[in-house]
Nucleic acid binder design. Structure first.
Lengths: 184, 184
DNA sequence: AGTTTATCACAACAGTTGTTATATTCATTG
DNA sequence: CAATGAATATAACAACTGTTGTGATAAACT
């Protein structure tokens, strides 16, 4: 069920992910869809929460058994659309963001989602700073924004540029920026 | 006319920028709208071209009488949503991008638009490299993507973070990254 | 002057949308 | 077996969408 909704959104965008389109995707009638999602609003919010959960999942897997800078880099790399799974996540993420323009309630929800990930990055930066791995003149709260901005920007690059960075170049760009935060 | 369309899109998003909504904004009937935009497709593409034009305009003003690194930095800063005008541009830009998910033709158009700006940045980087102002191990074509990624990411930051970077922090982040590209 | 052209109003179209209500099937449990 | 409730189907609703056509008016031009 939720898989079908996810697929339609990733493939067609949010405005064309109608109740009927999702019903058709799972080869049933709209009765099923309305039974699980009372509103279209609920459906849309579900998509956003899926984005957050999946990103968190990707991240948790990526950073296990890592520490130090490697851990930070792995964390940030896990957000990049390096495989088809994460490209789908990006599609839904962008679709939601565009759909939230002019809908303040949805934008607030999106900010909550982004805030969760930001918190994790801040903690990681603070920890690395305590270990004196990254420079002491860095404000974790601010640097988290910049790091996420770079990650989001690189992700968007794959969508909006006709000659986007390939996966190797994406990694290098991120790695190089992070290395500029280190001590020495 | 085009002003009204622009306002509605920035305020309500693309899917709710219906012919009738735009007509109401300019206090007339749909006859006027259909007379100037044959399709909704044309209306949407108009919005995108407006984004490109306005960004170019902002940029051209920002870089006049500048040279060297200042010119590059000013160019990049001109893309940031530092005032209300550019915040509106960002809104429309994001709305279009989300609307283009699942609509390949629109995404292609968006890539053309992004490609134009990318070309300018590449040229600028190449020029600075020739003057030996920026490092020689930098590939202008790749670095343009990274720079634009950072700019776009910082722009999005103002939309999706509940504690976004303020304008001063945005400038510092960008300036600091650019200074990492310089010789010595 | 007369003729064409741009501008706008208005109405109607066919289709799609979210939502709701009602009916039916199905399974689980008492 | 009966019964309760979830799961699914079906149908209808009103509202909205993009689009098209038919005029009316005014402006421009020959």
């Amino acid at each position: 069920m939720s898989e079908a909704a996810w697929r339609v959104i990733a493939r067609e965008g949010l405005d064309r992910a109608s109740m009927r389109a999702i019903a058709q995707e799972m080869d049933c009638t709209t009765g099923v869809v309305t039974h699980y999602f009372r509103n279209k609003q609920e459906l849309i919010l579900f998509a956003l929460h899926q984005v957050t959960e999946r990103l968190r999942g990707q991240m948790d897997v990526a950073i296990t058994n890592l520490s130090g800078v490697d851990r930070l880099v792995a964390m940030l790399l896990s957000f990049l659309p390096l495989d088809q799974t994460r490209q789908e996540i990006l599609q839904v993420w962008v679709a939601f963001l565009g759909y939230a323009v002019g809908r303040q309630d949805l934008m607030v929800e999106h900010r909550h989602s982004a805030g969760e990930l930001r918190k994790v990055v801040i903690q990681e930066l603070a920890a690395l700073q305590k270990q004196q791995i990254i420079r002491s003149d860095i404000d974790p709260a601010i640097e988290a924004n910049v790091l996420l901005a770079l990650v989001n920007g690189i992700s968007l690059d794959t969508l909006i540029q006709s000659q986007p960075l390939d996966s190797k170049q994406q990694k290098i760009a991120l790695q190089r920026y992070v290395s500029g935060l280190l001590n020495h």
